[in-house]
């Protein structure tokens, strides 16, 4: 078994600010997440939560330091290799769901396999099983436009989990939902992640949702201020 699911070592991300000033989105962040754990990243808006998730997903690269996913150092990988890693090992859930309106619920869930060139007969059952799991088996052929916010996020979770990623990243997954729906979605995501044996890292503003994680990382102005473990 791998030593860690996600490892950040002295990671800084710097953007060009006004004039010649540099703006740190993350500064010297170091942490290590064990496989199968659920970790909440908390902090105010602009604290660097989303940047951290982008770096973890390999859709952005750190200015300094190293990021490793299940032992694969993202710094050393080119664009294509990072995409390949993302395709194989990483799932992503967005705050605004980002379902494609011209595809049905089923096709939206199947999209990652479609992109990966997997044959339909291979993923057909998996898609059906996931939709069954989130309680939307009857909506498979519907367009996504008719779904509620909670339902859309459940479809998005199915899409993220389709290829059995070892690392699931979620950026404010309940940010667009009311409290009740948010709670349902969060419960479901945690259960499914546990069933799949994946590692979950999610960003949230909510203390309640953060409390559901095994561990919490608190960011403030790009600096990792505190860590807490649910077992503590």
């Amino acid at each position: 078994m791998d030593a860690s699911a996600l490892n950040f070592t002295d990671v800084s991300k710097v953007y060009d600010g006004a004039g010649s000033a540099e703006r740190y989105a993350l500064r010297d962040v170091t942490f290590d997440i064990a496989p199968g754990k659920t970790v909440a990243i908390v902090g105010r808006s602009g604290s660097g939560k989303s940047t951290l998730l982008h770096l973890a997903a390999g859709i952005d690269v750190p200015t300094r330091g190293s990021v490793a996913v299940y032992g694969a150092a993202l710094n050393g990988l080119g664009e294509t290799e990072r995409t390949r890693l993302r395709r194989r090992d990483i799932g992503f859930v967005f705050q605004l769901f980002h379902l494609l309106p011209h595809l049905t619920v089923r096709d939206n869930v199947a999209l990652p396999d479609l992109i990966a060139g997997v044959r339909e007969r291979t993923y057909r059952e998996r898609v059906a099983a996931l939709l069954e799991r989130v309680g939307l088996p009857d909506r498979a052929g519907d367009p996504v436009a008719g779904l509620s916010g909670g339902e859309m996020q459940r479809v998005a979770i199915c899409r993220a989990l389709l290829r059995r990623p070892r690392l699931l990243l979620a950026d404010e997954p309940t940010g667009s939902l009311d409290d009740a729906s948010g709670q349902v979605v969060m419960d479901l995501m945690l259960q499914m992640v546990a069933e799949e044996g994946a590692t979950l890292v999610y960003a949230t503003h909510s203390r309640e949702l953060a409390a559901m994680a095994d561990r919490t990382l608190r960011l403030h102005s790009g600096i990792l201020e505190a860590e807490s473990d649910a077992s503590e």
Binding site: A57, I59, E79, T80, T83, R84, R86, R87, R88, F92, H98, L100, L111, P112, I115, A116, R159, R163
Partner: peptide, 9 residues
């Protein structure tokens, strides 16, 4: 989105 879901350039 395609890129995030693993589509190559």
């Amino acid at each position: 989105l395609y890129r995030t879901l693993g589509a190559f350039r």
